[in-house]
Design a protein around this nucleic acid. Structure first.
Lengths: 103, 103
DNA sequence: CATGAATATTCGAATATCATAATGTAGCCT
DNA sequence: AGGCTACATTATGATATTCGAATATTCATG
């Protein structure tokens, strides 16, 4: 049942904080503390969302001393985010065109 | 807040039935009845999932007589599904390699 | 080995999602 | 108008997610 995988896959992407984490990791590896600061989110929340991303192999974790560095496991994940943005923008302009046609 | 959009966007993809609907529509326009049959799902469920896909502009609906034909609004949506599959397969083979290394 | 720093996990209540069942609506056809 | 077909919507109980608080773990250092 590959469909279930795909659904779980996308469901994991279906949270603003997790999207923000992945976007932040475009710049390279970051620690949990870095992510907390950038996202201005609770420690627990960041850690829980990272756990979700880890369990689906969206990110890799690398321990150095007491801190853990996270990175995106597969660069194709950013392709997904970019295609999503493209679709969004096409929707926007199509809606705008429809709106203007009604004027 | 574009992140929220992206999250909602992916959340909409985060259900097996909705993935199956989008995959079924690769062959072209289908009516709700067609989809019911192909997915062997309840009428209400199909209709509700279509409503979810409609609300996010994943699909277009076109009424002809008493039936409604659905189609995918933006072909880039299949790109998303395909990239997701690619990532999945890479994960699989990476896990397999790791497993074999442990033998 | 006691302490502190960084991160993870567990717990609980609030909220969201889902499936099923029931009801509503819109367009034929006679 | 009345009935039928094809969909859509609403209601409701069950399950899943999410957040913040509390607690636990892991590692370095004195």
């Amino acid at each position: 049942m590959l469909r279930h995988f795909k659904a779980e896959f996308f469901k994991t992407l279906g949270h603003p904080t997790r999207i923000r984490i992945l976007d932040a990791l475009r710049d390279g590896e970051l620690t949990v503390g870095d992510l907390q600061q950038r996202l201005k989110a609770e420690q627990s929340a960041v850690s829980q969302h990272l756990a979700a991303l880890r369990s689906r192999d969206f990110v890799h974790a690398r321990r150095v001393g007491t801190s853990v560095w996270y990175s995106v496991a597969d660069a194709a994940i950013w392709e997904l985010l970019d295609i999503a943005r493209d679709i969004y923008e096409r929707q926007l302009s199509s809606n705008r065109a429809m709106f203007e046609a009604l004027q």
